[in-house]
């Protein structure tokens, strides 16, 4: 799971991140409010067109997001086939597929820094309670960066253990992984402190620099 952003200059790429997220949220609500196959199918076609034609994303940018859901979609359809019927199953599967692709389009066309800025904006009213939006943005930016990193470390440790003949994941294998990534997080925290992230986020002017230093795009 590498950085999912696909650079581009289309209208979709240049649309404000807040607008894209709002559209995504509305789409999610609308899809769950309806159970009609025609409506969900129309939304599916529209989202697919927005991704492939309007944003000119490569097919694999969307496919890579759909692939992990595949088994889940088949299971969901099978479940509905047995319990409720093929029509409900088709709606449920198409709804999920549409949402995953829509999310993939937003993710692929929006820089992480822009997404983080939206969250900071959304959480800024919490300032009254002593919450610092800049630090929330920093945590989310770091989370996005850490996901591929942790996945990569996990794969490496699994391979190393497999090479020594271990065929199953056991708790004992998870410990070196956790220690490794905890140590890494400690280093990242210290590095950010050394660059002044600790106090600058509290005030204001250089805030963006702190987030940019860990951005993933």
């Amino acid at each position: 799971m590498q950085s999912l952003y696909v650079p581009g200059t289309t209208h979709v790429h240049r649309a404000p991140a807040g607008v894209k997220l709002a559209v995504l949220a509305l789409l999610g609500l609308a899809l769950f409010a309806t159970a009609r196959l025609v409506v969900v199918a129309a939304a599916f076609v529209l989202v697919l067109a927005a991704g492939l034609l309007w944003a000119r994303l490569p097919r694999r940018a969307l496919l890579s997001q759909v692939r992990p859901v595949w088994i889940w979609l088949v299971a969901l359809f099978g479940f509905h086939l047995l319990v409720t019927g093929p029509l409900v199953g088709a709606v449920a599967v198409l709804r999920l597929l549409t949402l995953v692709i829509a999310a993939a389009v937003v993710t692929a066309t929006t820089r992480v820094t822009a997404l983080v800025a939206v969250i900071e904006w959304l959480t800024s009213p919490l300032r009254v309670f002593g919450v610092r939006p800049g630090r929330i943005g920093l945590v989310i930016a770091m989370t996005l960066r850490f996901i591929p990193l942790v996945a990569d470390r996990a794969a490496r440790i699994r391979e190393a253990q497999a090479a020594r003949g271990a065929d199953r994941v056991r708790p004992a294998m998870v410990v070196p992984l956790l220690v490794q990534v905890l140590r890494m997080a400690t280093t990242v925290g210290e590095a950010l402190d050394a660059r002044g992230a600790g106090d600058v986020t509290a005030r204001r002017p250089g805030r963006r620099a702190a987030v940019d230093s860990v951005r993933t795009t």
């Binding site: 920093l138 945590v139 930016a141 850490f146 942790v150 905890l182 925290g189």
Partner: peptide
């Protein structure tokens, strides 16, 4: 501390 923010992000990622 910033280190704590990194731990929080780390477990969110995990």
């Amino acid at each position: 501390k910033t280190k704590d923010l990194a731990y929080i992000a780390l477990f969110a990622a995990i």
